[in-house]
């Protein structure tokens, strides 16, 4: 698996997410995760698309071909901040709670709901840290997991614009 993180600035028009996801489906590209929200400029949205592809050039070109796409930046993990939010409910009766809370504190995960048979954690971190925590607690019995998908920002002046070849 070769993951590429694309930050895609798009016009905030109805259906733009459908255009992006339809293009991925039609061209047979794999989306690993996709997160979208308003960008700094009103009227635009930023999508963080994580693509599983050996070769990213054609993906970028097809994305750029969509009329509502304004700009695409490939983010280098070494030169960007990447985060993911996870909510996870894990099976835990009172006897296991302490053990789980200790593990969570190491990962800076926060217990946000505690019940008789389960604990729900919230964790914000790099996608790999989030994954590490998930694997750590998996043996206790996962009841539910939701993830936000990756979001990412380039570090100051480390943005590498992917330009169409010309």
């Amino acid at each position: 698996m070769t993951l590429h993180v694309l930050s895609v600035l798009v016009e905030d028009k109805p259906g733009v997410l459908a255009r992006v996801s339809s293009m991925f489906a039609r061209r047979g590209f794999n989306i690993h995760s996709l997160a979208v929200g308003p960008s700094a400029e009103p009227g635009n949205s930023t999508m963080t698309v994580v693509v599983d592809a050996a070769e990213i050039e054609q993906v970028v070109k097809q994305l750029r071909k969509l009329i509502n796409t304004i700009k695409i930046t490939e983010l280098d993990p070494a030169e960007s901040v990447e985060r993911e939010v996870m909510l996870v409910r894990v099976a835990a009766d009172a006897s296991l709670r302490g053990e789980l809370l200790d593990a969570a504190s190491v990962f800076k995960a926060k217990a946000v709901d505690v019940g008789a048979t389960s604990v729900t954690f919230e964790m914000v971190g790099t996608p790999s840290k989030v994954n590490d925590f998930l694997e750590l607690i998996r043996p206790y019995g996962l009841i539910d997991v939701v993830k936000s998908g990756w979001i990412a920002l380039a570090r100051d002046s480390k943005t590498r614009n992917l330009r169409a070849i010309s």
């Binding site: 050039e57 054609q58 070109k61 750029r64 071909k65 070849i165 010309s166």
Partner: peptide, 18 residues
């Protein structure tokens, strides 16, 4: 004129968008 056609099937030695 369409950059996505360039390199889609055959990687060119000299790509020209225009």
């Amino acid at each position: 004129i369409d950059p996505s056609e360039i390199g889609k099937v055959r990687t060119p030695d000299v790509p020209i968008v225009g």
